[in-house]
Amino acid sequence: MLLIRCPYCEEERPELEFRNAGEAHIARSANISGESDDDFEKFFFIRSNPKGIIYERWRHMHGCARFFNAVRDTVTDKFVMTYKAGEPKPSKLPKNSNEGVAK
């Protein structure tokens, strides 16, 4: 079971308290009703599926109930960092602290 840091509670809590809410940084247009079919398709249907770093929304469902954003590595399943909803996509990621821990 993973540990996830809630940026609102400022604590690492077990995965059981959280729920994934899909890909992050997909903005709903302020003029959504006027969007073209192509733009709506991109907004609603098209999602990235990278091998590696993915930006996701999570909700601290059984905690503070806030939605927030997380950066996760789909290869190792590890959370690289989390940040509050509405904050910009981080331009630099912290070095994964667990990487290459030697004996």
Binding site: A21, R57, R59, M61, A65, R66, F67, A85, G86
Partner: peptide, 13 residues
Amino acid sequence: MNHMEDYLQTEFP
């Protein structure tokens, strides 16, 4: 409730 909270917190804050 989740659907409402989602929009309130993230699209219409």
